[in-house]
């Protein structure tokens, strides 16, 4: 009789792999990106593709140059690229996603040790880097090829109402409209016929993707739910509109909150691993988003809130270590 394999238990494994999880995230992002392409036109498709390609290639070339083995996690870079693209306005020139993709993969991810070691969400860090460096281009929500939508006859939107001089065209995203005291059209907001980045406008499409992720047990509701609820409560308390359903729902469905809550705040690597920590994380995200939106200069706050809270994750984990089964004392790690 020949020799048999010997290894320590357990001898069986779940079939879910890292790459499969990342592929699931990419699949879940399809409805929202497809809507973006439908609504914003072909340019959006080009941006998304360039962004994904840049990320995957950056990872490949980095590994080649550094002589590290090619990692079998190309889906992870793909998701980063897709998310980055979805966080860009459709009107940006082609070099913006290229620059952003290289920054996300090389600077934010690989230089910090690669998959699992980055402490900020690469796509969002790249978006914020681009926002700071190229505020004008990044906030020009010129919409071309928009279908008859009814939200407004305007075809030009702008997110940062504080920078109203940008490109000289005035206009606003729903959040900016509300910030200026106006009303958002909830129907358009929910379906996505509104201004914004390629992937963030349609709450409905994002929810469809989110349901898929939850059904596949890739994400739990802990972070997104606490995040969204906190934003609503914060807006209720500090928004200055009281219990105004239109305003509150506008805050929830408007801007990058849905995309951020379900797809970026839930990024495994940059969110807390402890169940309690995830709830704390969601609440903090909601508070910071609220502060940035209501008291900050701009109407948007999701991206900054997420990368800021990313930095707090180690601290959050430290104070939310669970109590071991049968142990009375909570031991801090």
């Amino acid at each position: 009789m020949g020799l048999f394999h010997v290894s320590a238990s357990p001898h069986t494994r779940d079939h879910v792999t890292t790459n499969q999880i990342m592929a699931d995230v990419a699949i879940a992002l399809i409805p929202a990106s497809a809507f973006g392409v439908y609504y914003f036109g072909l340019n959006a498709l080009v941006i998304l593709c360039v962004s994904m390609l840049t990320c995957v290639l950056s990872e490949y070339i980095y590994n080649k140059l550094m002589k590290t083995p090619q990692t079998p996690y190309e889906c992870s870079a793909l998701v980063t690229g897709l998310l980055l693209g979805m966080n860009l306005p459709a009107s940006v020139p082609i070099w913006i996603p290229i620059l952003g993709g290289v920054f996300a993969i090389i600077v934010v991810k690989q230089l910090y040790g690669g998959l699992g070691h980055n402490f900020m969400n690469p796509a969002l860090a790249a978006r914020c880097f681009l926002l700071i460096s190229f505020a004008g281009r990044m906030t020009n929500f010129t919409v071309t090829g928009v279908k008859e939508s009814g939200v407004s006859s305007e075809t030009v939107y702008k997110v940062l109402n504080g920078a109203s001089s940008v490109d000289g065209i005035s206009g606003a995203t729903p959040l900016a409209v509300m910030k200026a005291g106006g009303e958002a059209d909830l129907f358009d907001l929910f379906f996505g016929f509104t201004g914004g980045t390629i992937g963030e406008t349609s709450a409905l499409m994002i929810l469809i993707g989110a349901i898929y992720l939850i059904a596949r047990k890739v994400i739990s509701l802990r972070i997104p739910l606490t995040y969204i609820l906190t934003v609503a409560v914060f807006a209720l308390c500090f928004g200055g509109r009281g219990l105004d359903a239109n305003y509150l729902l506008g805050q929830v469905f408007g801007g990058g909150l849905m995309l951020g809550a379900f797809f970026m705040a839930t990024d495994y690597v940059t969110s807390p691993i402890t169940p309690m920590g995830q709830i704390v994380f969601g609440v903090l995200l909601g508070i910071f988003t609220g502060i940035f939106r209501i008291f900050g200069g701009s109407a948007e706050g999701v991206s900054y809130a997420i990368i800021f809270c990313n930095l707090l994750v180690p601290l959050i984990e430290k104070v939310t270590m669970p109590r071991a089964f049968g142990c009375k004392k909570r031991r801090k790690g």
Binding site: S7, L115, G116, Y268, V269, I273, P322
Partner: peptide, 18 residues
Amino acid sequence: DEAAEYEEGPCIRCGRCV
């Protein structure tokens, strides 16, 4: 041997183990 079928990769902090 299922245990030998997969290669070990870096932790993605998914929280499943927790």
